[in-house]
Amino acid sequence: MSAQTKTITVTIRYFALLREETGKASETLTLEQGTLADLYKHLQERYKLSLPIGAIRAAVNNRFCSWQTDLGEGAEIVFVPPVAGG
């Protein structure tokens, strides 16, 4: 990260397979400002996540959002693996 890069702090909650693969239910990260897709790719590398981005949906502050959404300071993020209710 260069000194000029703006950083933000976000909270991520993990469920189901993502919770097991990351080994945590949530975490707070400070990272370079970017999109939801940038963040998932970062996490995929960091935790060797098995689910491709195409299999996942993402929500910010309790609303489903597109992968191009820019993350803001304090965002609360949920990555939603393929669901199977009922």
Binding site: F15, A16, L17, E20, S50, L51, A55, A59, V78, V80, P81, P82, V83, A84, G85, G86
Partner: peptide
């Protein structure tokens, strides 16, 4: 709609001791 849209996940635990998050191909 509930089965397809709600953020709810199901892990099956089988008699042979294995388990699987349904729809997660893992």
């Amino acid at each position: 709609a509930i089965k397809h849209r709600l953020p709810i996940w199901k892990k099956e635990e089988y008699l042979d001791g294995s388990s699987n998050w349904v729809n997660c191909q893992c």
